[in-house]
């Protein structure tokens, strides 16, 4: 059987695409991902800026509700990973981690992004041994300790603020002299007595034999090197698009984001649409991802009607 539509990915973009596509009776199959279902919001805490939620909403709750809404209109949800895609030609073939194959006339790609690593040799070695990318998962284990967060955007500031619930002190390390984060979140961090800012500073090495014991730091203005003791390092320096399965078959830009045609979600391949963080360098919000997921469903619906 050849389906109308497969949706790959399940953050706000994927679920919104599924809600629209299933309401339009396209009977979509959605691959949610075996351990990534729900996407980046699954490891956040409170989302305060998603319109309609006056008092905020927990990220995982918002995603669970979007999922239910997609299921309500008949989206077939599969909690597995896509491991192979052949997107050229009129019939697209998608293979999952259990070896099942689905064919469809149209595909919506909404695989989002993954955490960026600093790129230090000791980062992987000490990962899970003091180096973490998930404050909500791991903050608890750093009770009454002095820890570092590296980054200057919304996620770094959110993580630093969240971590003050556990840590005795959180040092936010940023390579510039001001934060990129939204003003309300930046002010919250700057006014938090448990957060110390370390401006114009880069992490050049992570120290520790069995677990993190400190960081080697470099001042980006003076070039001065120093070392400081920490028991944990939370990395929040941004994201990279999860486009590794697409390399060689779809047009990507030089940072790996899927290229789309103008304001649409059309890729260079007929019948293949992309949305959410996979295409977005700029905005990267839950609401913009949801909006582009809606666009992708409408673009796919129009394509399938021809």
């Amino acid at each position: 059987m050849i389906r109308d539509l497969v949706i790959v990915g399940s953050g706000p973009a994927g679920y919104t695409a599924a809600i629209y596509a299933s309401r339009a009776q396209l009977n979509p199959v959605q691959y949610e991902g075996s351990v990534t279902a729900g996407g980046a919001l699954m490891t956040t805490t409170e989302v305060e800026n998603f319109p309609g939620f006056v008092d905020g909403v927990m990220g995982p709750v918002l995603m669970e509700d979007m999922r239910k809404q997609a299921a309500r209109f008949g989206t077939e949800l599969i909690t597995d990973d896509v491991v192979e895609m052949d997107l050229k030609g009129d019939v697209k073939t998608i293979k999952d981690g259990s070896g099942n194959v689905v064919q469809a006339r149209a595909v919506i790609l909404a695989t989002g992004s993954a955490y960026k690593h600093i790129g230090l040799a000791n980062e992987d070695r000490l990962s899970g041994r003091g180096v973490s990318w998930c404050a909500t998962c791991d903050g608890f284990f750093f009770r009454d300790q002095t820890i570092a967060v590296v980054g200057g955007g919304d996620s770094a500031v959110e993580e630093a603020t969240f971590l003050t619930k556990f840590a005795s002190k959180v040092v936010l390390i940023h390579r510039r002299d001001s934060l990129r984060a939204s003003k309300i979140m930046a002010d919250r961090a700057l006014n938090n007595p448990k957060i110390e800012m370390l401006w114009n500073t880069e992490v050049v090495d992570i120290l520790g034999a069995e677990k993190v014991s400190g960081l080697a730091l470099k001042n980006t203005v003076t070039g001065e090197l120093s070392e400081r003791d920490f028991t944990g390092l939370f990395v929040a320096i941004g994201h990279i698009p999860r486009s590794e399965l697409l390399i060689g078959q779809i047009d990507l830009d030089n940072e790996g984001y899927v290229k789309v045609d103008g304001r649409s979600t059309r890729t260079n391949l007929s019948g293949v649409f992309a949305c959410g963080d996979l295409v977005d360098h700029t905005y990267r919000q839950a609401i913009t991802a949801a909006g582009s997921g809606c666009q992708a469903a409408l673009d796919a619906e129009k394509f399938l009607a021809h």
């Binding site: 075996s34 351990v35 490891t43 995982p60 998930c134 909500t136 998962c137 608890f140």
Partner: peptide, 14 residues
Amino acid sequence: WAEWCGPCRAIGPI
């Protein structure tokens, strides 16, 4: 594992 850890809940069924 812990109740509040999303990735922990994700691998539970696996």
